[in-house]
Design a protein around this nucleic acid. Structure first.
Lengths: 190, 190
DNA sequence: TGTACATCAGTGAACGCGCGTTCACTGATGTAC
DNA sequence: TGTACATCAGTGAACGCGCGTTCACTGATGTAC
């Protein structure tokens, strides 16, 4: 185990430390509200260190997106066997629980979408979603439409909730609300 | 009519010119990819002029959001009498046709959400959406859920389409696709 | 087990640049007389 | 109709600052012998 307390010259885990600082900065100010130098300050390292690992801000956000899509795909695959219902709920929960990742992942102008790690995890996530939707469709055309509908539904709910756009009257646990909403739609789609 | 060709000392329409430059800049680089100075350059005016009208970037984006929500509310109210179906389609179409506005409107960290013009137009838009959903619901609880479902559906579809997240296999006219999707969901929700 | 050396993660000083902000100024316009 | 003046939209030079980038460097680590 390398040292955590930063008493050596070599950090040992600088890459991770910078990523964590980025996630915190995104949570506080969005993906655009900070500079690489501020990140270095947060992480307590030299201002040149982030560039040493990630090249530039786009490279750093590419790493965030890759990590995010990997966690996202894991979360969806974990419940894939339980049906499209649970996949939809997992989609919403991921967005609520991992807001900084979510805010980067669906803003492709922020990072390099052709990064191999991003592409692979993205495809895994899409696969879990489409496979789930396939289970409830009689025809291929209907299946395609149903998959897009479910995806739009859970993505829209998550985005609206995160941006605070839903009326204040909409109180209570967002996951419970999402469950009710998905049940309402699925009761007729299936 | 004031001069357009900018041969006088006074621009005559500088506020409009800066707003238009902002919309173009947002279309090209997102709401974060430019500075007030760059905007002034685009609009062909002194670099101090935008601040003269809008104070700072947040003030400028507040004006964009207010204008956007006004246009949005107009578009939804225009089809409100035709039912929730057409309101949903109008929602999607607004996002597709007015991407720069849409990208600002649902990112409340970018502007002052307590601006009176923003608040008024926002409430008008929400009213049109909720009134439409009310038409297809037997109970108040169901109505509330149905409204959130429709809203999530059309908002999610628009966001996913704009970010290019929908699979490339999903070709064709997005509005047609949105119509099919909304019909599929409404056929059972109503 | 000890020594020499290559590697490379991380440092920190220095650079030029574009930024937002300030401020004294310019000059077109509208109004009073 | 003409003159004087107040207003204020817009200018442009100057400022200090934080930024990304460069680059010679430091020093911990791993490997060869």
């Amino acid at each position: 185990m390398r040292q955590i307390s930063r008493q050596t010259y070599h950090h040992g885990n600088l890459r991770r430390a910078v990523l964590d600082a980025a996630l915190q900065a995104i949570a506080e100010a969005g993906p655009a509200g900070w500079s690489l130098r501020e990140l270095a300050r947060r992480a307590g390292v030299s201002h040149a260190a982030p560039a040493h690992h990630f090249g530039d801000k786009q490279g750093l956000l590419t790493a965030v997106a890759a990590e995010g899509f990997t966690m996202f795909a894991d979360a969806l695959e974990r419940v894939a066997a339980d049906g499209i219902w649970e996949v939809g709920v997992a989609y919403v929960r991921f967005g609520l629980d991992h807001r900084p990742y979510f805010e980067v992942m669906f803003r492709p102008d922020l990072y390099r979408t052709d990064d191999p790690a991003v592409v692979a995890a993205h495809e895994r996530a899409a696969g879990a979603l489409i496979a789930g939707a396939g289970s409830l469709s009689p025809t291929p055309e209907h299946e395609r439409l149903a998959a897009i509908a479910i995806w739009s539904l859970v993505h829209g709910f998550t985005s609206l909730w995160l941006s605070g756009a839903l009326p204040e009257s909409t109180t209570g646990d967002p996951e419970t609300l999402a469950r009710s909403m998905i049940r309402l739609v699925l009761s007729t789609l299936g």
